[in-house]
Simulated scan of single mutants.
Amino acid sequence: MSTRLDLPGGVVELRAGPASAGGGDWTRTAYAAAHVVADPLAEADPWVDVAVDWDRTLAFREHLWGLGFGVAEAMDTAQRGMGLDWPTSLDLIRRSTELARGHGHLIASGAGTDHLAPGPDVTIDDVIRAYEEQCEAVEAAGSRVILMASRALAAAATGPEDYARVYARVLSGLEQPAILHWLGEMFDPALKGYWGSDDHMAAMETCLSVIADNADKVDGIKISLLSAEKEIAMRRRLPDGVLMYTGDDFNYPDLIEGDAEGHSHALLGIFDPIAGVAAKALSELARGDTQAYHATFAPTVPLSRHIFRAPTRFYKTGVVFLAYLNGHQDHFTMIGGQESARSTLHLAEIVRLANEAGLIVDPDRAAARARAVFAARGVAA
């Protein structure tokens, strides 16, 4: 089955990709950082107010769990720090964790300091208290903590020693080992200089020291620097038992497969829109069929690199656009009005690349929905 779609730049024949299949006993732990579905009919001003369609949001998490993924909740993919505030994030964490625990699903949730606005009067003690407040709430909900990078800490810290102090204090109070998250400035410019240096390799030394000093409280670290070389260099120096979770949406197939000296697990935003294909690839890897694994993943990489292209912080727009095309929500509306964050040509290329990657579930539906979006932007498709 195929459907013709006229797009800016040429005609595309949309074809249905293979049906999604649930994962088996994977050899990698794989979290998908999941997006939230906005409620477009709420009486709210989208640039100011947060309105979530809870039924659709939770149904999408059931979709990810059904394929074998863990859910990384209330992360930047869920527009944390770009429209999703802490009270709504905590509501989301509680709802998702209750659902996960009821069915034995894997979940970990973001705890940060986003309720503390950075400023000249914010102290390191303020940052610690803010982190502890969110960590306590996440663990009280029953979820493992993903310790998110803090804009307030990046602004308040005067050097590596402040990072060491904050992380040691916060990690010491946790009931379960946490997943650390080093989010690069390409994802959030306010995090430039995290770990006390603009030089990623110097920053890595501080981060590794923090992990070594608190290894019993660290399950692993997700780094999102979009550099396979830096991730591998760090992976090879992690203490025994501390996992590397790739956050590299450019190079994930090779990093997950690994090499003779180790491999990465995964906590990825791109797993949200490519979940069905990713589940197939991870099952092939678990069977030892690396040729099939790379053949399955390879067509998704150009799509991921396009969705996460600079300014990378706007990648959520492409993620939600594909969720709309594939029927996971009935509208292309985002919290904070972020559906406007990418150009019409950018969205048209997403359609082409998703089609080439076998990610279109229903070509007729995808074509009709794409036409509606492009018509609203003044393009007949």
Rank of each mutant, 00 (worst) to 15 (best):
A375N: 02
R236I: 00
T206E: 00
G68P: 07
I256P: 06
I223H: 12
A108R: 10
L268K: 11
D25Y: 02
R352Q: 11
G22W: 12
H115V: 04
R352P: 09
A42G: 07
M75D: 03
M148Q: 15
V166M: 03
A168P: 07
A190F: 03
T333E: 13
V218E: 03
R95A: 15
A21Y: 07
R4C: 08
H294A: 06
G288A: 04
A354G: 12
R313E: 14
S224W: 05
Y194G: 08
G258Q: 05
P302I: 09
P118Y: 00
A202W: 01
R313M: 14
L347M: 14
G142C: 01
M204W: 00
W26Y: 07
A155T: 03
E161C: 07
L153I: 02
A292R: 07
A72I: 00
T206S: 04
M204I: 00
T88A: 11
F250R: 07
G70L: 07
A30L: 04
A286F: 02
P363N: 08
N326F: 01
H294K: 09
E349K: 12
A354N: 11
Y131M: 00
L347V: 06
S143T: 11
G336F: 01
D25Q: 13
A33L: 10
I221G: 06
A310E: 15
H105L: 02
A149M: 06
A354P: 10
A203M: 02
E175I: 08
A228V: 09
A156F: 03
H181Y: 13
M82N: 14
E229Q: 14
D126M: 03
A59F: 05
A51S: 12
A381C: 10
L267Y: 12
G81K: 01
T158S: 14
Y252M: 09
A178Q: 05
I124S: 08
D216M: 04
T3L: 08
V48I: 14
A149W: 00
S340W: 08
P311H: 08
G173D: 05
H181R: 01
Q338S: 06
G142P: 07
R369V: 04
L14E: 08
G112P: 09
D188G: 00
R371N: 13
T97A: 10
A164K: 09
G112E: 07
L322M: 14
V48T: 12
A354D: 01
A266R: 06
H346S: 14
I107D: 02
D272T: 14
V301W: 03
R129G: 11
A323N: 15
A130L: 04
A310C: 00
T123R: 05
A381I: 07
T29R: 10
L238M: 10
L282G: 06
S96W: 02
V379T: 11
T123W: 05
R237E: 11
D85F: 08
P18C: 11
G336V: 03
M201V: 12
G247Y: 01
G193I: 00
R169F: 00
R144F: 01
F308W: 06
N326T: 09
R80G: 13
S340A: 12
T290R: 11
